[in-house]
């Protein structure tokens, strides 16, 4: 779906409140938002809840806010990021283990083999009911890579995901993570350099 079509949907949903326009927006953005939340939140169920909540908010606020196709995408990611932060805060209050980093760190500390970590990723896939990567090799690469990705700081991880998974430009990412464009560039470069060192 291109920007013109998105704009049309947003405008008509604002005017008429017809759910079919919202459905188009939902089908375009929901998988992306879900992917973003899954990569940021340790438990899949929570990631699903957060993604759903983002779209509940979208349903309510698209009609009220002055959003177009260009603004809508970063807005959705920003809402998702804020909800993720809220989720971490609530979990921290409860005293539970919070991030995926910590989860995987604990696993590795307990001397789990690579396969088990892959299993964990697979469990996470099954729960989410996601059509994950097909070939066995790619699975392993992804699991290992995910583990390394989780050693980065939250903001580095988020910037990398937004830049190279969600294909957002630096300016939009800056809006989402409340930083300027140059800072985002620096963060992404630092994160990639760190990952490169880890991959060696």
């Amino acid at each position: 779906m291109d920007n013109i079509e998105l704009d049309f949907c947003v405008r008509n949903f604002k005017k008429t409140g017809d759910n079919s326009f919202f459905e188009k927006i939902y089908r375009h953005f929901f998988p992306r938002i879900l992917r973003f939340t899954v990569l940021n939140v340790s438990e899949v169920q929570n990631a699903e809840d957060i993604a759903s909540e983002v779209f509940i908010k979208a349903y309510r606020y698209i009609r009220k806010l002055n959003l177009n196709a260009v603004k809508l995408k970063p807005w959705l990611y920003k809402v998702a990021r804020n909800l993720i932060i809220d989720f971490y805060r609530k979990e921290a209050r409860k005293g539970k283990k919070v991030s995926l980093d910590q989860y995987l760190e604990e696993k590795s500390a307990a001397d789990y083999s690579n396969e088990e970590i892959i299993d964990n990723v697979l469990v996470f896939k099954k729960d989410l009911d996601i059509e994950f990567i097909q070939s066995g090799e790619e699975k392993i690469i992804n699991a290992e890579f995910l583990k390394k990705l989780n050693t980065l700081t939250e903001i580095q991880k988020q910037v990398l995901i937004l830049r190279f998974v969600e294909d957002l430009d630096h300016k939009s990412i800056g809006r989402i993570v409340n930083k300027n464009e140059i800072a985002v560039r620096a963060i992404s470069f630092r994160a990639i350099s760190k990952l490169r060192e880890l991959m060696k």
Partner: peptide, 29 residues
């Protein structure tokens, strides 16, 4: 690294899940 990150793009929910979730979103909204 960029390609490994790009592999996450393949992470997609099933069609059934999408439609069911949409109904939930409508009711919740």
């Amino acid at each position: 690294i960029i390609e490994s990150l790009g592999n996450f793009k393949k992470l997609k929910p099933k069609e059934e899940y999408l439609t069911n979730n949409l109904k939930n979103i409508y009711s919740m909204a």
